Simulated scan of single mutants.
Amino acid sequence: MKSKKTIALIALLILVISGAAFLYQRLGAGIRGEGPSVIPASSAPAEGQDGESSETEEVRTPLPGTLSFTDPDGSTITLDELRGKPLVLNFWATWCGYCRKEMPDFLEVYQEYRESVQFVMLNVGETREAASDFLAKNGWEDLPVYYDDLNLQMARAFGASGLPMTFFIDSEGYLAAYEPGMTTAERLRTGIGMILPAAEPKTADGASASQEVVNPSWCTMKPVYTKIDPENAKNLIDEAVESESFFLLDVRTEAEYQEKHIPGAVLIPVDELSERAEREFPDQRSLILVYCRSGRRSEQAARMLVEMGYNHVYDFGGINDWPYETVSGSEAGD
């Protein structure tokens, strides 16, 4: 009996880790439509007082309320049951190093907003015993932990292509923003400000958190230019390395690329990007991480891709600031 349970758990983990790209592209489409950028609103004719169409109005579709998971006692909870109050939804696992790093920040912000915002720390692919023992050992048992153990409904639907991932959902059930990768207390407060405007916190100098964080490493549900540091970029690369929708883009010259580049990088010089992007990156939902030598061309390229409609683009600057592995052209094995 134990061996069957072990095999089932291993299968779940393999599904999360190896099947992330499939879940995002196929099953996630049930919620995301053509991609995250279409979720906030779409245009539809608005009826005038005489019943005839007049101006267009924004039409939004809430997340499917039948999506479900379980609480620590094993009872089923649906998203429908959580409507009426803003929700912060986090996907995590005990084996995820970046999940562990962000737990203290989640505990801090949860204790601050627990009366006005719901938090669901959704454990993926592990037993209740493993998760609860881990939380107790680290002093995080106050966190509201739940389990995605109903055939991974939530991970599949949200396209949780890497852990951790955090989603910000308003009180009516609409997805407002999400952050792939590790978050911080400051960025959690910024995301909460999007779903609970009255609670938007202030920084030490009195500025709002959203003003303070100019380029947070989370995506609103429309194409935006986003700058991240090399550590966050390495985290995203490690989590998405098996994804068919993952691209590491070098926008320097051929000579610079051959001299030194990051393993797995695709070379498209910035002056060729406008002509080649659609052909090289046909899916605008693809994760694209961009770098150059010092950061100037990577910003130019990332902004260009955003203008073209790509909604998962990250500029992590120059290879001069990259502290991890690099290879030369002869060693790349491209």
Rank of each mutant, 00 (worst) to 15 (best):
residue 1 M to K: 15
residue 301 A to M: 07
residue 267 L to R: 04
residue 318 G to Q: 04
residue 222 K to M: 08
residue 14 I to S: 14
residue 267 L to P: 06
residue 271 D to W: 04
residue 65 G to E: 11
residue 130 A to H: 09
residue 155 A to M: 03
residue 220 T to S: 05
residue 263 P to M: 04
residue 128 R to S: 08
residue 216 P to L: 11
residue 185 A to Q: 09
residue 140 W to Q: 07
residue 319 I to V: 03
residue 13 L to C: 13
residue 93 A to H: 03
residue 334 D to C: 08
residue 282 P to E: 05
residue 40 P to D: 06
residue 141 E to N: 09
residue 245 S to E: 10
residue 161 S to G: 13
residue 138 N to C: 01
residue 270 V to C: 12
residue 143 L to Q: 06
residue 211 Q to K: 15
residue 89 L to W: 07
residue 171 S to C: 06
residue 144 P to W: 02
residue 56 T to H: 10
residue 187 R to N: 14
residue 37 S to N: 12
residue 205 D to V: 10
residue 84 G to M: 01
residue 328 S to A: 10
residue 1 M to D: 15
residue 268 I to E: 00
residue 186 E to C: 08
residue 89 L to Y: 01
residue 37 S to W: 09
residue 64 P to K: 03
residue 64 P to Q: 04
residue 240 A to T: 06
residue 69 F to Q: 11
residue 254 E to Y: 05
residue 315 D to Y: 05
residue 165 M to D: 10
residue 285 R to I: 04
residue 265 A to H: 01
residue 219 C to R: 13
residue 234 K to I: 00
residue 265 A to L: 01
residue 160 A to P: 03
residue 174 Y to C: 10
residue 332 A to N: 12
residue 7 I to Y: 11
residue 110 Y to S: 04
residue 157 A to V: 11
residue 260 K to E: 09
residue 144 P to F: 05
residue 253 T to M: 08
residue 25 Q to R: 15
residue 59 V to N: 08
residue 3 S to C: 10
residue 134 F to N: 06
residue 120 V to M: 10
residue 3 S to E: 14
residue 290 V to Q: 01
residue 133 D to A: 14
residue 196 L to K: 13
residue 154 M to S: 06
residue 79 L to T: 01
residue 256 E to Y: 01
residue 208 S to I: 11
residue 279 R to V: 12
residue 214 V to G: 08
residue 194 M to V: 10
residue 162 G to N: 01
residue 162 G to K: 08
residue 104 P to G: 06
residue 167 F to P: 03
residue 16 V to A: 14
residue 36 P to Q: 06
residue 42 S to G: 09
residue 214 V to N: 04
residue 43 S to V: 13
residue 35 G to H: 00
residue 155 A to S: 14
residue 257 Y to H: 10
residue 76 T to H: 04
residue 97 G to R: 04
residue 56 T to D: 15
residue 88 V to F: 01
residue 257 Y to S: 02
residue 264 G to C: 00
residue 190 T to W: 15
residue 211 Q to P: 12
residue 132 S to W: 07
residue 290 V to K: 00
residue 57 E to V: 15
residue 260 K to R: 12
residue 15 L to Q: 15
residue 187 R to M: 15
residue 116 S to A: 12
residue 131 A to C: 11
residue 151 N to E: 14
residue 95 W to H: 08
residue 132 S to H: 12
residue 82 L to S: 04
residue 309 G to I: 07
residue 219 C to L: 14
residue 276 R to H: 02
residue 323 P to N: 02
residue 4 K to L: 15
residue 240 A to N: 13
residue 256 E to S: 08
residue 50 D to P: 10
residue 6 T to Q: 10
